[in-house]
Amino acid sequence: MPATPPKPQLILISGYPSSGKTHRSHQLLTYFHHQIATSPDPKLQRLAIHHLNDQTLGLSRNVYAAARPEKDARATFSSAIKRALDPNTIVIADGMNYIKGFRYQLYCEAKAVQTPNCIVHVGTQPDKCRELNSAALQAGTGGYEPEVFENLVFRFEEPNGMNRWDAPLFAVPWDDVEPPCEAIWEAMVGGNAKVVKPHAATILKPATEQDYLYELDKTTSDVLNAIKTWQQDHPGEAGVAIKIPEAEREVELPATSPSLPQLQRLRRQFVGLNRQLSLSKGRIRDLFVDYLNDAFQS
């Protein structure tokens, strides 16, 4: 008998535009509803499923034509996922989820509530997606304008199961009749489901410490300044661990040394994730170093 799910479950659907993501989501919905309805476990029978995509959230495909509306749409999508992640709930997040940093952000959200999560990648190739997109436009049933379609394909960052935030990863080729529903069920709800332990940087706590936001901003800036100073003193060096003043851990630079804009982007992500929390001020530095090392391992 499957193990009783102790926490919500998050399934991220990923794929090129017009790849068939919603069709695959509905196949998962059908299978999961059947599993819940036929389970002898009363706790499993109480499971609810939330299917979220642009259509259910009232988002137009036109949002992808400009950077600001697209960013706002991702924020709406992310907020809807977080609201839906409550006990006894399976969330199927049916979007392109094409940005690696966005998938990492949702991975952190899942860790914060200790929920199993996975990626289902709809692996339809671009040429087939292009054909399906053109047919949908001609029929007036959907599709993206050609320029928007090509831009989204160009910017797509394919999931990699070697990354923690993209694992477990289930790929669904175009020719497959249906997704590996049984394997996904087992990974999320059944005997293979893992209760994810939250990273210290994602544990939700009320913001109570005085001057917390100031310390969050100052400490993360200090870490970036230390990295920048080291890079200036060691031009061309990479793939090494560098000591950060007052930090217990070292920053492990990747083989290609990160640029200042890349570091600033990671800092903004960390601050955004932890702005509403209250990390111990004495731990911010080490937790930010951990966050950078996680990101560099991708």
Results as ranks from 00 to 15, higher is better:
142 G>K: 00
290 D>E: 11
123 G>S: 13
145 E>M: 04
85 L>Y: 03
21 K>G: 07
197 K>V: 10
16 Y>I: 15
165 W>T: 05
279 L>P: 05
251 V>G: 03
272 G>V: 03
284 I>T: 00
289 V>S: 09
247 A>C: 01
51 H>D: 06
120 V>S: 08
181 C>W: 08
145 E>P: 05
71 K>V: 13
233 D>S: 10
162 M>S: 15
231 Q>E: 05
56 T>A: 02
25 S>N: 09
232 Q>A: 09
227 I>R: 07
246 E>D: 15
49 I>M: 07
30 T>V: 12
152 L>K: 01
132 L>Q: 09
3 A>V: 15
79 S>M: 10
163 N>I: 08
213 L>R: 12
171 A>W: 08
59 L>S: 00
185 W>L: 06
166 D>M: 02
193 A>R: 10
90 I>G: 03
215 E>L: 13
194 K>T: 13
134 S>F: 15
142 G>P: 00
292 L>S: 04
189 V>Q: 12
217 D>M: 10
143 G>R: 01
7 K>M: 15
39 S>C: 06
134 S>H: 14
26 H>G: 09
7 K>W: 06
81 I>L: 02
221 S>V: 09
159 P>M: 06
38 T>I: 02
114 Q>C: 11
289 V>R: 06
246 E>Y: 06
148 V>Q: 03
173 P>W: 04
27 Q>Y: 06
268 R>N: 13
279 L>E: 01
134 S>R: 14
163 N>M: 05
99 I>R: 14
194 K>Y: 07
158 E>A: 14
96 M>R: 13
239 G>H: 00
262 Q>K: 09
235 P>T: 01
224 L>N: 10
70 E>H: 06
119 I>A: 08
226 A>C: 00
287 L>N: 04
124 T>H: 03
152 L>M: 15
65 A>F: 02
119 I>P: 13
217 D>E: 13
106 L>E: 07
203 I>M: 11
252 E>T: 11
83 R>Q: 10
274 N>Q: 10
72 D>K: 08
67 A>E: 13
2 P>S: 11
52 L>A: 03
43 K>H: 15
88 N>F: 07
181 C>F: 05
165 W>V: 07
258 P>H: 02
109 E>W: 14
89 T>Q: 07
135 A>K: 10
142 G>T: 01
24 R>L: 07
284 I>P: 06
169 L>I: 05
121 H>I: 04
173 P>R: 03
116 P>F: 00
32 F>T: 11
90 I>S: 02
186 E>N: 12
97 N>Q: 06
183 A>T: 14
280 S>I: 05
2 P>K: 08
153 V>C: 12
87 P>E: 05
206 P>S: 06
204 L>H: 12
213 L>K: 11
209 E>Q: 14
278 S>R: 04
255 A>G: 11
30 T>I: 13
210 Q>V: 10
167 A>H: 09
30 T>A: 14
5 P>H: 00
143 G>E: 01
